[in-house]
Design a protein around this nucleic acid. Sequence first.
DNA 1: AAGATATAAGTTACCGGTAACGTAAAAGCG
DNA 2: CGCTTTTACGTTACCGGTAACTTATATCTT
Lengths: 353, 353
Amino acid sequence: MRDKNNKNNKISLSKVAEAAGVSKMTASRVLRGEGGYSEKTKVKVMQKVDQLGYLPNRLATVFAGDQSSTFVGVSIPDLGNEVFAQVLEGIDRKLGSFGHQTVLGLTQHTPQEEENWIRTVLSWQPAGLILTGRFHSPRGTEMLRNSGIPIVEIWDLNSSPLDMSVGINHFDSGFDMGRYLVGCGYKSIGYVGTSHDTANAATTRLAGFCKAVEGGGGNITKQLCLHDTATYYPGFYGTEQLLASNAQVECIFFQNDAMAFGGLQYCTSRGLEIPCDIGIAGWGDLPIASVMKKRMTSMHVPHLKLGRTAAEMMIARLSGEPIENCRDIGFSLIPGSTVLNQNVGNSAADDVP
Amino acid sequence: MRDKNNKNNKISLSKVAEAAGVSKMTASRVLRGEGGYSEKTKVKVMQKVDQLGYLPNRLATVFAGDQSSTFVGVSIPDLGNEVFAQVLEGIDRKLGSFGHQTVLGLTQHTPQEEENWIRTVLSWQPAGLILTGRFHSPRGTEMLRNSGIPIVEIWDLNSSPLDMSVGINHFDSGFDMGRYLVGCGYKSIGYVGTSHDTANAATTRLAGFCKAVEGGGGNITKQLCLHDTATYYPGFYGTEQLLASNAQVECIFFQNDAMAFGGLQYCTSRGLEIPCDIGIAGWGDLPIASVMKKRMTSMHVPHLKLGRTAAEMMIARLSGEPIENCRDIGFSLIPGSTVLNQNVGNSAADDVP
DNA sequence: AAGATATAAGTTACCGGTAACGTAAAAGCG
DNA sequence: CGCTTTTACGTTACCGGTAACTTATATCTT
């Protein structure tokens, strides 16, 4: 009267076949529309399928052999970040339209969590995996290598991916932002972000940013890496901390737009005029920007498209179509109006007034 | 040299056993730590497991019988809405910590999509399902009923759930907001939201809202249901449409905070002062509110906790613990400062100046 | 009408694990 | 020392489908 019965109560193909007075194999053929049965038999079987409410057991099908499952494992750092939520949405919609199912893994930016998740999800014989980031633990990498299934690494573009990669060059995007801000005439620039255990995209962006700023004659006067999530409120209090320090800061670059909005609100609440008193630059171009009067200076990345593309690459690979294994999805700088371009009309970037 | 080989190349338990010079069954016992083997044998087997990089095939285990899978299917309308992203995060984190995996389904608010997803996900023999919303297609409901697995319906509180339910009473939350706004002295109130094929939570909220407003002597002068997503920009242009109509509107209630922010920005851009010229009320209390100087009048719902609770109920049920099958997670009105309370100090709600 | 061919089935074996049962050797015991 | 009990395995069967093969009947040839 417990689990056992549950099992027994389940309608299997054999029961349908028995009820219809045919063999299991004939019922299987009807359900797969494979042919080799009469119209009369088909009707008999389908009637019983409806009547008994038969639901196939895909586990058995996949397990039986040749067919691989329709699962695709997707690892995402976290969903608190709107950006990743959109990437996931793009992935799942596209995968779903091709009959695949997303098995989610929130890996919290740690390779250990990711490794555990990889081990678990591989045990379910997925058709493929989509992973965020290019860095994996050694054991994780080994399992991925040995899995023999398609793997798409997203977010960070990886010129020598395990298998396939789609994303952007975060170093370059940071560099471009740095060059832009220096080009606007800023000399003393601050940074507010969060810290992570491992090298990640934000760190790479910061590296590119620093290189551009310092190479352009500017200075990163203060760099704050909070032990917190990269959301609105940490942006708010991080800015408070930054401005409370003695460091001279004419402009702040934030890890992402959410933090930048937090920073913007802090500045406004302290009576600072943006961009006259201080410049603010974010990264990621959140949807909320679409309604803000003062457009945030930011870096636009096509998140949904990134997710869709990752799913498309996966599907192409699964269906054996030839596919380039590295795709740059691109980014574009949004000048916005939260920084002041002190050199409007000038093309030279390092022209000091 | 194709798929077949892939299969052949996979390390199965038999291969490990063969390599270690023991039977399949002994290897199985070692891996499950079930006992009944010598220390020497254990070492031999584990060595080969490491050496060959054996990964168990959970499909086979589940398929084999007694054990149910560790999958939990989770359907979410969409992730463009930050609120649902947070709910999902809460669910997956909690499920993950108990060794369960989330199989995602984005059902786009349509019962048909949900039905298709239910059919597919059930074929994978999940341990349980978590569904957003209380309304399902007839066939979907039937499949759920027959599945015999734990089911948690979230978001909408369902006093007679299929199995379990956790969420809030959306009618009441709309009612409370309506009563509050009328209590503030507003008489002519507008609404901006989006339309859906089926009755959903937002519609229920609106119903409660209307009842409170009309019952309190106020009027819904204009009600806009856009055929669009419930995000920032539709809130912006929806407000434009609303204000362009001849309807008299002193205050606008929005389907959610994202739309309310869009509306707020539209009003500000047109030189309207909030809340002096027009009141704005949202729903959901987005994280961005934490940094806005002018706190949005809204309804707070503990999203992460909602997700966590749903997962906890699922896990409790799966482990056979007794559990109440209906949990009200509650909401709380955030007065904010985007509406003007014209009766500060008064307790009577329908006091007209 | 006899043989060749097509059609509509049924039979068997297998996927990778595990439960249930069987068995030989080692250990315990009076 | 011979008996029972325990330990450490091995064997067999099965989960729910499907591939590959076999068989029985219907249809087509000339």
